[in-house]
Design a protein around this nucleic acid. Structure first.
Lengths: 109, 109
DNA sequence: CATTAGCATCACTATATAGCAATATAGTGT
DNA sequence: ACACTATATTGCTATATAGTGATGCTAATG
């Protein structure tokens, strides 16, 4: 949008990216990778997600370029490939924050 | 994220917002409202969405505070309630653009 | 009051996907 | 070659939701 044209194909691509972030489990993974890369096992114990489930989420995030993988021996280390996700989350959190604030104003003006 | 804590509840709220944008039809609606408010019928002919379907999408966008409604007689006019959506879309489009560019570089270095 | 127009809602079907258990694959050490 | 470990993949079930047609609701009009 803005300088971009929103043809049907682009709409689908954009929606796909948002869909990747539309899942608490994946947001949790992204947050876990905020400060350092982690192996799948580490992510598992940090997020509490099952191994197969976690692996699928990581595939999705990887296919869309949100995370990068680095394999060393048996381990696969995942890291953030694009820190702009945090910009996205910030904007959304600001919105939620703002809504909560104005709701509070309604209740206790 | 960032200055926000990502408890389970917040994760769900954030994911909910992204989910609202994870649908081409709703992105199309938001894009249609970029320059001016529109009635449901106008949105229908602009987007090609069925009336019932369109109405449901508008409820979702309205419940989450993305659009505002204004009723005059028989008509309900919808407008954007928060133009920060475009910031979100811009960031995502930039990402897609960047991926396309680097893919091209790989094929024809 | 009856009719019509614009929108919302309901009931339903079809599709997508999160989560889980089981199995497969690949690297490591014995 | 064998056993073990870390991930990936597959097959499945359960749930969510996009789309559609029918129906409901409300406001304008005759």
């Amino acid at each position: 949008m803005g300088r971009y044209e929103l043809t049907g194909e682009v709409l689908e691509l954009v929606a796909q990216r948002f869909r990747a972030l539309a899942e608490p489990a994946r947001l949790q993974i992204i947050d876990a990778l905020r400060n350092r890369e982690m192996t799948v096992t580490e992510l598992g114990s940090k997020t509490g997600l099952g191994q197969a489930n976690l692996s699928k989420h990581l595939q999705i995030l990887h296919n869309l370029g949100f995370v990068a993988r680095r394999k060393t021996g048996l381990f696969v280390h995942y890291s953030l490939a694009d820190r702009r996700v945090f910009q996205l989350c910030e904007i959304v959190c600001d919105r939620i924050d703002g809504e909560a604030t104005s709701r509070r104003r309604l209740l206790a003006p």
